[in-house]
Design a protein around this nucleic acid. Structure first.
Lengths: 213, 213, 213, 213
DNA sequence: GATGAATGAGTCTTCATTCAT
DNA sequence: AATGAATGAAGACTCATTCAT
């Protein structure tokens, strides 16, 4: 039984997936019809359904695939033996997405935005995305802890809170780049550099359980 | 020649718009059918089309309305005669959205995410959103300049880059809250506080056009 | 809210149902497409789905409706105060279906055959059909008991077994009429009349492989 | 020029046909997809089409094959040199189908019902089925004539009408067994036995062309 | 002969929108 | 102004059949 080889099978799936994002970016995830994807992929309707159960699986796989690529981009930076110092680190992380976008010819920022939106109403996608962000944030926490050990950051600071703040910067840059197109890594880095020089004259507003000390 | 007063007309539009976000949040913008909205609004199909041209106008107006509410929330904080100091400011801005969400019973974070995604493929929405973010960022720049005058931030820092970074931070916090649900204003402020204490040992890696002057 | 009146609603349903059997008889239940029914009904696709959930409901209702008509035809004969004598009874029952077929212009025999076949793989239809046949047979049993009281049939005979045999005659006539077209009520009655004159030389077979000699 | 022997060819056809009825009985003739049959047969799509032109031929052959088996079951009983007496005859015929069903593990009653339904809209199947029933009825007529010669049945009775009635009975028993499952040969025979003892007090109502001479 | 991936016409169903009342 | 039944063009998906290997 000379079934198609696993390799060929994956090639077909890739061929179809390669057609998905151009469509999604052009018309939006839900406004894209299967016919759009089918035409773009160059295959027949039946063939697409031979490799994917239906539109839902296609959406899920498309998002999952891109999250995987993103992971591949960020992993080296996040898990370096010795973490970069804060500003180089920010620059490096912010650059990863920009580079990939340029390389693949797909606006990864827009892809990510659509993924987040999809996650709001699609449980499977939400699981994917939250798991990714959680891991991402955990890695950031580890980096912050290194910074603390290396005295870049005060030892008594809340590493997790800092990781959350850092993640916000990165996620927000994606939004800003997708919508305004002028939030390049260098600018973000410079902005954060400016912020880091900020003096903290008074304690922050006494929120509920805010103050620690 | 309107047969009803402008006031009544607006009341009807509001009634319909009030039905839109619950639907969008439940099923997503495009998976929501007109019938969903019609049922939720308690009006008839015909009535809805009497007040809105079609689904597109409904989407646009729904997003526009929420941007308006957001503007109302942020304006007082952003345009205070004398801007808050950095940490209180961060806390105040981050709180604005959380408060509104609690008050209106609508997850504003999710609404905003959907709006961004919609903006990717809908020109009218994109115009709305970019205009909003641009104004928001300009206001942030003004605040940063105040900080510089008050020596919270170094005078030679790039105020616009800092505003972009700040905007990223706020936008990213929306994402984080929508997806992970654990990015409350207090934690975020604490994270920023921790970051502000960061020392910048070396200049960041001299990327492409990094340093302006 | 001037919804359509229940009467109008039923009229529409009838209009659609009236289109169903001509289609089913022409092409078969499953080879009939919704488009066939839609075209035959003179309505639009949407309208048909406004009155029936889908094809399954249409099939079920179509069969149910015809069973109802059949019930209406048979009830008067089966539940007469004083049952007809055997031969007139057979003739009357067998005529009921023939008459209806002529009146409605729909070959009820074929309809019934399709219903039976559908029942083999469609639980809801099976429930409908078996319930009908069971009731039908119970009524026959009651008639046979009357015959026993009136000495047409021996008192010690098994009334239920006789009812089963009678039902077989009637059901089989439907088949024969649908396929060969020459099993009219008069002929069936004459055939049974001939059988009734049969002498039973030996006792009937007792158990399974029962006596023969 | 067949590349394989006729014997091998027939073996392959049998292998495929063996897969057909299990599928048909499970899902219905038309709801069964070629893929269902292909999977059940253990062959490839191409192979099935090598031995059968298409689904239509498969349906026709499947029905034809089962009619052939039925013929094989009934022939010995119907064409005995000396026909059985009425009650043993009824029992024997009714048993034939039940036995086969048990032996082959396929519910022959259901198969037959589906065949009849298919015949309503498929000319080739109709030809097959009517030819079968006609022959069957002719054989029954011959049996009835033997009964007349042996005085089981009155000589002046209409042998053909009696054969039609008998055929109805047998066909109807198939229906009853398929749908209610409680029409076993013994019960049916007992029912007929009870009927044969029926007295015919008056002539049946002089319907249209009832009595011939 | 045998395989099973590929095809694409056709299926059921939904849904934004209209319009007679 | 208001209603909601009706429309019909898409939409997602299936499946009998073919053909390159």
């Amino acid at each position: 039984m000379p079934k198609i080889s696993e390799q060929q099978r994956q090639a077909r799936r890739d061929q179809i997936l390669a057609a998905v994002w151009p469509c999604f970016l052009r018309k939006g995830v839900h406004a894209t019809s299967m016919e759009d994807i089918i035409r773009e992929s160059g295959l027949s309707a039946g063939a697409v359904y031979l490799y994917f159960k239906g539109k839902d699986e296609l959406i899920l796989t498309a998002i999952s695939t891109y999250l995987g690529q993103l992971r591949g981009l960020l992993l080296p930076v996040l898990t370096r033996e010795e973490a970069l110092a804060p500003l180089p680190f920010v620059h490096e992380v912010a650059s990863a997405i920009a580079k990939h976008t340029k390389r693949a010819g797909i606006d990864l920022n827009a892809v990510i935005l659509m993924g987040w939106s999809e996650a709001q109403t699609n449980g499977a996608v939400k699981a994917l995305v939250t798991e990714f962000q959680t891991k991402y944030r955990d890695a950031l926490t580890a980096v912050v802890r290194q910074w603390q050990r290396r005295k870049h950051v005060r030892a008594e600071a809340d590493a997790e809170a800092i990781a959350k703040a850092l993640l916000s910067f990165f996620l927000g840059s994606i939004v800003q780049e997708a919508l305004l197109g002028d939030a390049d890594p260098a600018t973000l880095t410079r902005g954060i550099e400016g912020l880091l020089g900020t003096s903290v004259p008074k304690g922050p507003p006494g929120g509920k359980g805010r103050r620690r000390r």
